[in-house]
Nucleic acid binder design. Structure first.
Lengths: 242, 242
DNA sequence: GAGTGGTCTAGACCACTGC
DNA sequence: CAGTGGTCTAGACCACTCG
């Protein structure tokens, strides 16, 4: 029995791809409703159940958000509930705190070997580097150095960062139409160098949590590489294993 | 047919609970097949589609494992593919390594205030404390101190730990019928004290990754509390954000 | 070939939202 | 009230595994 099609792909997977394509193409923007299951079923020529299964998986991946009685929405980093989805930081005593981003610098550069590799660019392609502090309850806790693809975040300036109230990823969404969908982090413990110690208000040589992150937008395309130094004197990085 | 309960709960959720109950009660053991969807549908008096949705979610939570054409299996920590599900450690260069657990001590104690709170026990209830090293490629990388509920792991001995080839959670499953299903971790960077430095072969004061973990079995019951000190000179803790 | 999970459909009805 | 997602069912057929 020869298999008819060498690459079998279920219908709902194909629908999933089509929806991601539409999201990537900006047909429906973050925070907006997408068409109802029935409409999509007609549009793609499949049953509602098949559309439903596709949306189920996209919702499980946090690309979409279902709200009974209202509709299905494009997930957004500007949704207050999604704020801490990529920032796994918590005060040691568990109390909620106010947080604020303090941009320090923003400059243009050429991608080095490592940045080019991670971001899928060529050597010396344009990148943008941002340094910023994250404060909790007015005290600095995280020092971030962020490498962005220059072709995508062309017009980013320090002033833009300073004016924006909200998360960095919210800004990327609103101003550049780039939505971070997935990220990989690698954590290590390191000793604070002079600069980091000064900015974070700790002694030189103190242990800091180094968090290296690669963030991806639709289609597993890497667009950001960052390294954070977290002061864990009064905070910790939380993670769930399932 | 529909139960007129004040708190509405979908049928498939109820089926989910019944299946978890059966798992918890040991009706089907880790690694074994559970009855087919059709059989379960008859047993619970619902349609196969409803059983299917229940199993779908349990499989997504890693309680069950579906294998097309063979059946649905109870997930097990002795399945080689599940070995690294709770150990998010990787060599910096990404090369796979052999790992080995080296038990150091195992003794009985009474729960202090913190252990009692975390493990849901009363002050001075019996607990068991285990210290062990994890080696990668023959070199010590993790020092674990593990607090276990004494009522559950009654007969655990150092010899038993030394003889077991495989993961600790695999031992718990095989000898005590306790399957770890979920865990919460809190990470910080700390300085190595004298003891840890000696055991891990680093200098005193070197930054180490402190990983505090609470592990839960079925029904979100906490059964283990542990603190690991990870040497991140040549390894890192990896995490995926979605 | 028999048995398992995986896909797809069509239709009925329920629960929630907002006009 | 109409429109949305959420649940449940029944049945057909496909893909995989194993004896």
């Amino acid at each position: 029995m020869a298999t008819e099609s060498p690459t079998f792909s279920p219908l709902y997977q194909q629908i999933k791809s089509l929806i991601v394509q539409a999201l990537d193409g900006g047909e429906w923007r973050p925070g907006e409703v997408i068409p109802s299951e029935g409409e999509l079923a007609v549009r793609y020529g499949v049953s509602q159940g098949t559309v439903r299964k596709a949306i189920d998986e996209l919702a499980a991946d946090n690309l979409l958000l279902r709200r009974q009685g209202k509709g299905t929405f494009v997930a957004s980093h500007n949704d207050p509930k999604a704020f801490f989805r990529f920032l796994r930081l918590q005060s040691l005593n568990g109390v909620a705190e106010s947080s604020r981003s303090v941009p320090l610098e923003c400059w243009r550069a050429k991608a080095g070997q490592e940045a080019a590799r991670v971001l899928g660019m060529k050597l010396a392609d344009p990148i943008i580097i941002v340094r910023r502090l994250l404060e909790f309850s007015g005290k600095p806790v995280v020092l971030d150095e962020i490498y962005l693809r220059g072709d995508i975040f062309k017009d980013l300036t320090l002033d833009m960062l300073k004016e924006w109230q909200g998360s960095l990823y919210g800004l990327f969404e609103a101003h550049f139409g780039v939505r971070m969908v997935h990220a990989e982090e690698r954590l290590r413990a390191v000793a604070a160098d002079r600069t980091a110690a000064d900015l974070l208000g700790v002694r030189e040589g103190m242990p800091l949590l180094s968090v290296e992150r690669i963030s991806f937008t639709y289609g597993a395309k890497p667009v950001e590489w960052r390294r954070g130094l977290y002061s864990t004197a009064e905070h910790c990085y939380v993670n769930e294993l399932g």
